[in-house]
Nucleic acid binder design. Structure first.
Length: 341
DNA sequence: AAGACGGGGGT
DNA sequence: ACCCCAGTCTT
C-alpha cells in the first residue's frame, strides 16, 4: 500500500468520523441518498434532512412509489432540487429495470440520473466494497496539496491528472475505510482556509506544506472575464488649457478631476453645445487607452478637440494649464492622456 | 468549455 | 453584506 493510503487509514482509526447516520451500514439505498444529499452540502446541514427522508422513504420501493412532489417537499430547503428529482427518477428506474435493487458496478450506478463518476464510486465502495477512486472537492484539495498539483482543479487537464492520481493511490484492500478517511481528511483537517496541518498525518510528505504553498493550492478558480466598459473622454483644449470636470463624490474616481465623458454613440457637436457652450474647431481621435479595475475593464477612447469661444464654464468645470492639470487630483488614465499632449 | 442549479460558511 | 464553494446535467 502507498504510504499515503497507509497513513490515511491509520489516522482515520483515531480521528475519522464513524457515527454518521449513513455509516455502519452496507445498505446501498441509505448510502446513495446520503451521497446525493452530501453533494455541495455539508454534513451538519444534511443530517436532519437525511433522517426525515429515510423515515418517510425507507427504501427504493417507497421512494419510487411516492410522487415527485412529496419527494421534493422532503428536499425543501436543501437546495439543488434536481438532486431530488433525479433521486426519484433513479428509484423508478431501479424498480423498472433492476428489480428494485442496486447494481454493484460503479459504471452501472453512474448510468443512473444524478449519479456521476465520483458518487458512483463512493456508493460502490461503501455498499459493495468495489475498488474505485472518488474525486470530490475535498479529495481534489487533499491531492492538490499533498502532491503539489497546480492549476484549477475544474480544468479538464488538471482534473484528469487528479483522477489518475486518485486511482494510483488506491489501496489493494480496504477501500471503504480508505475512501471515508480521504473524505474526512479533506472535510475536517485539510480545509480550504485554516487547514490544521499540525494534526495532519500527511504533513511530512505534503508538497504544499513543505513548500509553504498550502494556501495557494489548490489553485483558485480563474476569475470570470472582467466586464468591458467603454467611454469617450473629451480632451477639450483651448490655447494651452484643457477642461476638467469634477466627478460625483461617489463611484469611480469619486471627487477627482477628469476629462468630460460622453457615450460612444453621442453626437459630439450636440454635447459640446449643451455641456460646454463650445464649438469644435479641430477634432482628432487619440489612441485608445485601457484601464483595469478590480471589477471591470474600461476602454477609453480619447477625443482631442480644439474648441472655440465662448469659454463659459459651469459649476464643477475648470480650465487648467497642462502643468496645473498634472498637479490636480486626477486619476491615472487622465494623467496618461495629459502626458500625450 | 461554460453555465445552471440553491444554500451555507467564512471573512 | 459580501465572496467563495461544488457534482451533475445541459447547452
Amino acid at each position: 500500500m502507498s504510504d499515503f493510503a497507509h497513513r490515511l487509514i491509520a489516522w482515520h482509526k483515531a480521528h475519522g468520523r464513524h457515527d454518521l447516520p449513513w455509516q455502519n451500514t452496507r445498505d446501498p439505498y441509505r448510502i446513495w441518498v446520503s451521497e446525493i444529499m452530501l453533494q455541495q452540502t455539508q454534513v451538519t446541514a444534511v443530517i436532519p434532512y437525511f433522517q426525515r427522508f429515510m423515515a418517510r422513504f425507507p427504501d427504493i420501493a417507497s421512494l419510487a412509489a411516492a410522487s415527485v412532489d412529496e419527494v421534493l417537499a422532503h428536499w425543501s430547503g436543501l437546495g439543488y432540487y434536481a438532486r431530488g428529482r433525479n433521486l426519484h427518477a433513479a428509484a423508478q428506474i431501479l424498480v423498472a429495470r433492476h428489480a428494485g435493487t442496486f447494481p454493484h458496478a460503479a459504471l452501472e450506478i453512474a448510468a443512473l440520473p444524478g449519479i456521476g463518476r465520483s458518487t458512483a464510486a463512493a456508493v460502490a465502495a461503501f455498499a459493495f466494497g468495489e475498488r474505485g477512486a472518488i474525486l470530490d472537492g475535498n479529495v481534489k484539495r487533499v491531492l492538490a496539496r499533498c502532491f503539489g498539483i497546480a492549476g484549477f482543479p475544474g480544468a479538464p487537464a488538471v482534473q484528469n491528472r487528479l483522477w489518475a492520481l486518485a486511482e494510483f493511490l488506491l489501496p489493494v484492500a480496504g477501500i471503504e475505510i480508505y475512501t471515508q478517511a480521504l473524505m474526512d481528511l479533506g472535510a475536517t483537517l485539510c480545509t480550504r482556509s485554516k487547514p490544521r496541518c499540525g494534526d495532519c498525518p500527511q504533513q511530512a510528505g505534503c508538497v504544499a506544506y513543505q513548500s509553504g504553498r498550502t494556501l495557494e493550492l489548490p489553485t483558485a478558480k480563474p476569475k470570470a472575464a472582467l466586464p468591458q466598459r467603454e467611454t469617450v473622454m473629451l480632451i477639450l483644449q483651448q490655447g494651452g488649457e484643457v477642461l476638467l470636470e469634477k466627478r460625483p463624490p461617489s463611484g469611480i474616481w469619486g471627487g477627482l478631476w477628469s476629462f468630460p465623458e460622453i457615450a460612444r454613440t453621442a453626437i459630439l457637436e450636440a454635447e459640446l453645445a449643451a455641456r460646454f457652450c463650445a464649438q469644435a474647431q479641430r477634432v482628432m481621435p487619440l489612441a485608445p487607452l485601457a484601464h483595469g479595475f478590480t471589477h471591470y475593464r474600461l476602454n477609453i477612447y480619447p477625443l482631442w478637440v480644439e474648441t472655440s469661444p465662448p469659454l463659459q464654464t459651469k459649476t464643477g468645470q475648470v480650465w487648467l494649464s497642462l502643468e496645473d492639470a498634472r498637479g490636480a487630483a486626477i486619476p491615472t488614465p487622465v494623467r496618461k492622456l495629459l502626458d500625450r499632449l
